[in-house]
Design a protein around this nucleic acid. Structure first.
Lengths: 244, 244
DNA sequence: TCAAAAGTGTTTTAATTACACCCATGC
DNA sequence: GCATGGGTGTAATTAAAACACTTTTGA
């Protein structure tokens, strides 16, 4: 840490949230349309400045709430990494701490007037370069997607994309969307249900769908995020994604 | 990103470096003795405040150089994560961005007088609570060690602990020290040399040691960090550490 | 009865583990 | 020679991949 002689430089610190969800068989990201300069009219990750006395996750949750209308964090929120402070904001040096949210598809408040408009966009349209994001948000999104992909291999957090209760097929759809691959339903079923500490049978079944009813599972107790405690649980052996 | 109406709060931002190396068969961390308040006399991670116009890795490299005397970053440096800004510095809110350095055992400048004294300490003595660190540095160290352990499974960065050229046995000693386990020398040899894109035979051999001379390897081209580019290379299948 | 999705069993293939054994050097 | 570590061969175990087949619903 510091020599205290010269007063340290101070920087504006922002938090950005890469909120990912799965629907329509693809991975989607929550983006807001910027109403002010810089990058006015461009799409951007939701985020904003950290307030005095605030912690990083607190700020990330608050910004998410402000820009989408959700009261509570609707999924798994973790820190992704920090970017800057140089050369990423035309107004000057701003350090941003990016966060990753893995969540079930939640409704975004289509607020009126002066609030920034938040909506879901397929990740592929952004990473393919069809849509240009503000700041260095394309790079942050790319890092977030890469992190999400490997989280699915080594942690039970794929379930964070599903609701409280879900079928194995819904969970498989998550893996297929995030990894962009197809997985054998039979082998996936065996692996998911057979991995200790991953899924917990609720005893309940789906109904009303086409085909045979499916068993409903929830994330096993050991794998659920404990308050304060980091989720230690690891899938072992991992659920490997096919390479090339 | 921000509504620009109220001027954003500004925070001092520091970088800390968790420099890890392996010698005497254990993992060691570089610590400095604090000469000033707060936590005067306590051991701490090397680090300091980010300067205006500076980037995070730049600052981390500079602080490392200032407190150890190395000219160039002697290994693999990557961002670990950010901590704060609340409740971690008695002087007020300071955001710190922790970095992880995996390096061969390099000499630390035992500087005189007013420079902080840097030296290597076995990680176990700190994590066992025998030594108390300043700030939240114990938590940061614990996170860094956990990151290092998993890096060894999925990336070729175990080699970052070795010099430019090394034997399979030296590499194995790294894995054993970081994971705190023993590995079968025969199976490790086959796995390390047989994993594509990991090791590259230099054609040279050790000499003067007891026992049969060993082949010298270097990290394969694809696995070495390219300037600017993040190291994409992944060990597949991973080199799994034994669980429990 | 048929389509569609859930779920089980079985065979094949590949990777890990355990361990016997030979090799090349210093002393 | 013989101790010491380097390196290869091989069988046993375990996990992954491929795929045939049965189950249970809605229409």
């Amino acid at each position: 840490m510091p020599e205290s002689h010269p007063a340290p430089a101070r920087f504006p610190v922002s938090v950005d949230v890469v909120a990912l969800t799965v629907f329509d068989d693809v991975l989607n990201v929550l983006l807001v349309t910027r109403l002010i300069e810089p990058f006015r009219g461009r799409l951007a990750l939701p985020g904003g400045f950290v307030l005095p006395g605030e912690d990083l996750v607190t700020a990330a949750g608050r910004e998410l709430a402000e820009e989408t209308g959700v009261e509570h964090v609707p999924g798994h929120l973790e820190q992704l990494g920090s970017y800057g402070p140089r050369g990423r904001d035309p107004r000057g040096d701003v350090l941003t701490v990016a966060h990753l949210l893995l969540a079930p598809n939640f409704p975004v408040l289509t607020a009126g007037s002066d609030a920034e408009h938040a909506a879901w966009y397929p990740v592929s349209t952004v990473l393919d370069g069809e849509v240009r994001l503000a700041f260095d948000h394309e790079r942050i999104l790319a890092d977030a997607v890469e992190r999400a992909k490997s989280k699915l291999e080594y942690s039970p957090l794929g379930a964070a994309f599903c609701g409280e209760e879900f079928t194995v097929a819904q969970l498989r759809a998550v893996y297929e969307a995030v990894w962009g691959t197809r997985l054998d339903p039979r082998n996936f079923h065996r692996k998911a249900t057979g991995t200790p500490g991953f899924l917990e049978d609720t005893g309940r079944m789906t109904t009303g769908e086409t085909g045979r009813p499916a068993a409903l599972f929830r994330l096993a107790g050991a794998a659920r995020p404990a308050a304060g405690q980091p989720t230690r649980s690891v899938l072992n052996p991992p659920l490997m994604r096919p390479r090339d």
